Amino acid sequence: MIKLHATRKLFEKLKLTSDGTLPVTPTSAWLHEKPALDINPLSGWHGHLVTLQRRNCVLMTHDSTRFPLVLPALTKPDFAELNYRFVDAFMNTLLKCGATEIHLETADKYLRPLQVDTECSRSVQGTLNRMKDEFEHQLYYDRLNIAEITGYNAGAWLADTPRTVKGQKNALWPKDAMLTLLERLAMQTSDNRDIE
């Protein structure tokens, strides 16, 4: 599973099963068929529901890399398909960040269904609040209609913004941090194949 720590506002929009997952849909069935992982380095995201231009938008950030995702103009059916929307936003934002085939293949290996709870870190929530302000400014400055964008470019733009993380001296660059994580995972996979 991929843990998603949701703010109360987002949590209340989701219809979850007893184990905190979204019901299986035709577009997310393939995620549920993947084998379970003891430790998933792609797990650990925070999600926040915001209203921009009178539309529901979900902003997400990966806890350790602060890699951002923007899911704009969501309707009720989109919340039921949050697994699909998450995967779509993640893979396409990686592409916009210059990810190679190795990055994308590695990310695909670790994709799993979301498991949602409300345990939130104030530090990561601070990043989400800053992302919201920056994205709102981008919408205004570039005169963008939120209903007409995918969010991939916005996510890539936010990924190229340094973030401060509690307990770290240096700023974190989300794009570099996520691509480095995927490169490290690709090398581990390659090393394991060599051993076998």
Score class of each variant (00 low, 15 high):
1 M>G: 13
2 I>A: 06
6 A>K: 04
10 L>A: 10
13 K>C: 03
13 K>D: 02
14 L>Q: 08
21 T>Q: 15
26 P>G: 09
33 E>P: 02
33 E>Y: 07
33 E>T: 05
41 P>Q: 08
45 W>A: 06
47 G>Y: 02
48 H>F: 01
48 H>S: 10
49 L>I: 08
50 V>S: 04
51 T>S: 15
51 T>V: 10
54 R>Q: 14
54 R>M: 12
58 V>P: 00
61 T>V: 14
65 T>S: 15
66 R>H: 09
67 F>G: 08
67 F>R: 10
71 L>K: 07
77 P>T: 04
77 P>Q: 10
87 V>L: 03
88 D>A: 07
92 N>H: 11
95 L>A: 12
95 L>Y: 01
97 C>D: 02
97 C>G: 06
104 L>G: 06
107 A>W: 00
107 A>Q: 04
108 D>P: 00
108 D>F: 05
111 L>R: 09
113 P>L: 06
115 Q>G: 03
118 T>Q: 15
120 C>D: 07
121 S>L: 11
124 V>M: 07
126 G>V: 02
127 T>R: 14
128 L>H: 03
128 L>D: 03
128 L>Y: 03
130 R>F: 03
130 R>N: 10
140 Y>C: 07
141 Y>L: 06
143 R>Q: 14
143 R>F: 01
144 L>R: 00
145 N>I: 10
146 I>V: 11
148 E>G: 03
148 E>P: 00
149 I>Y: 02
149 I>S: 05
150 T>R: 05
150 T>L: 10
152 Y>A: 12
153 N>H: 11
155 G>T: 13
155 G>Y: 04
157 W>S: 06
160 D>Y: 08
164 T>Q: 15
165 V>W: 07
165 V>C: 09
166 K>E: 05
166 K>V: 12
169 K>N: 15
173 W>Y: 15
174 P>M: 03
174 P>N: 08
175 K>D: 05
180 T>C: 01
181 L>R: 08
182 L>I: 10
186 A>R: 02
187 M>D: 12
188 Q>G: 04
190 S>M: 13
193 R>T: 11
193 R>S: 06
195 I>S: 05
196 E>F: 07
196 E>Q: 05
